[in-house]
Design a protein around this nucleic acid. Sequence first.
DNA 1: AGCGTTTCCATAACAGCGTTATTGAGTCGA
DNA 2: TCGACTCAATAACGCTGTTATGGAAACGCT
Lengths: 224, 224
Amino acid sequence: MPNRRNLATEPPREDLAARLLEEAEALVRRDGPDGVALRELARACGSSTMAIYTLYGGKPGLMQALYAIGFARLHAYALAVEERAAPLRWMVRQMLAYRRFALDHTGMYRLMFGGEKRFSPTGRHSQFVSLAVPVEDAYPAFAALVDAVGTCLTHHRGAAPDPAEVQDLAFLVWGQMHGLVGLEIAGYADAADALGRYESAVRFICTNLGAAAADVDAELAAAG
Amino acid sequence: MPNRRNLATEPPREDLAARLLEEAEALVRRDGPDGVALRELARACGSSTMAIYTLYGGKPGLMQALYAIGFARLHAYALAVEERAAPLRWMVRQMLAYRRFALDHTGMYRLMFGGEKRFSPTGRHSQFVSLAVPVEDAYPAFAALVDAVGTCLTHHRGAAPDPAEVQDLAFLVWGQMHGLVGLEIAGYADAADALGRYESAVRFICTNLGAAAADVDAELAAAG
DNA sequence: AGCGTTTCCATAACAGCGTTATTGAGTCGA
DNA sequence: TCGACTCAATAACGCTGTTATGGAAACGCT
C-alpha cells in the first residue's frame, strides 16, 4: 500500500471515505437505494463528487461498500440474539431479529435484496460478480440461521440431522422470512396484521422443527 | 368523456397510448423497472416525450399503468391453472405458476414487488396511494390463492375451515412463494438449486395443508 | 360555413443525474 | 530541493424527468 496519507488541510476532514459512507447510509435510510445522489452526498460531506471516484471508483463501488455494511449490520442483529443453550429461543429471536432489521433499515434491506443489482458482500468495493452469489458469501448471517436450525432440530430430535437437510430447511426459513418482510415493506400488508402473520410463520416453522406450540408462544411472548 | 378522438394524421399511429405501454413493457423486460427512459420509449414509438405526459401524466402514471398490466399478467397465470375438481393439483400448479410468472417476467415482478414505489393496481393511472394497499386490491390473484388454499383445506379436512384462517394461511403461502422467488431473482440461489428448493416448499406447505407427501410428489412430477 | 374552443403532441429549454478530462494543490521519497 | 505521485476541485458531456411554449387538427356552436 503506497502513501495513502490524508491531506488534511485547514478543514479537519477526517477520513472522508468513512464519512461519505456514513452519509450515504443516511441517504439510503431517508430515500431508499435510488435516493443516493453523488452530488448531494458530496455536498453533505463538503467535498466534490470526484472524491467518491478516487475513493470508491464511482457510484457502483460506493453502493457495493454500502451493501457490505448492510450485511454487517444484519449480521450484528443475528449475533445479538445468539443463545446456544436455548435452541428454540434462539430460533424464535433470530427470526424476529431478521424482521426487526428489515424494518429498522428498510432502504438498506431493499438495496441488499431488491434484486436490482448484484454485489458481492465479501469482496472489496468496485468488484462485481456476474454469476449467482453463493449463499454463504452473500448472507453471512445465513450461517447463523443454519446453525440455529441445526441446533433446534438436534435438540428436538435427539440426534444430529443431515447437514444438507439443515441447509435446505434453513433456506426455506429464510425464504419465508424474506417473503413476509418483503411484502410488508412493499406495502402489501397492514402494519397491524404484519406482525401477527410473521409470528404465525414463526409458530408454523418452529412446530415443524419439532417444538411444542405452547413453548413457541411462550418464547414469542417473552421476546415481544 | 369529451371529444377524445384520435388525430390520426398521415402516419397511421393507431392508439399511441397502447403502443407506448407495449413498448414500455418490453423495456421493463429488457432492462428492469429502472430501464424505462421516456426519451427512448418515445423514440421507439415515433413520438415525443410529451405524448407520455398527455396520455399518462408523466412517468409515475406510466409506471402505474405498467404495474396494473403486470397484475393482469399474473392473474392470467393463476387463472390458467385453476382446477377446482382436484384441489391438490390446483394448489401445486398455482404455486409453480407463481414462480413461472416471476421468472418469465423478472422486470415486471421487481416493479410490482420491489417495494420501490407503491401503486394501486386497481386505480387508473396517475393515482397513487399513500397508505398500505389492501391485499385483495393489490394482488387480485391472491383471491385465487385463498380459494385454492380453502378448497384444499376443505378437501383434506372434510369440513369448511374458518375463512380468516384460510386468509392468513394463504398469506403465509404467498410469503413463502414471494420469498423464495425473490431470493432467486436477486441471485441468492443457484438456478439449479432454486427449483428444487421451491418444490420442497410446495411439499412442505401442501403436506401441512393435509395432503399426503406421495400425492404432492406425484403432482409435482406431473406438472414438471 | 365560419369561428372560437379544446385536445393532442412536437420543439426547446431547465435542473439534476453519473461520469470524465483537466488541472492544481499538497505530500512523499530520493 | 526536486521530480513523482496522490488526492480532489472545476468544468464539461450526455443522459434523465419535467415543463413552457406553440402549433395543428378536430369539435361545438352560431
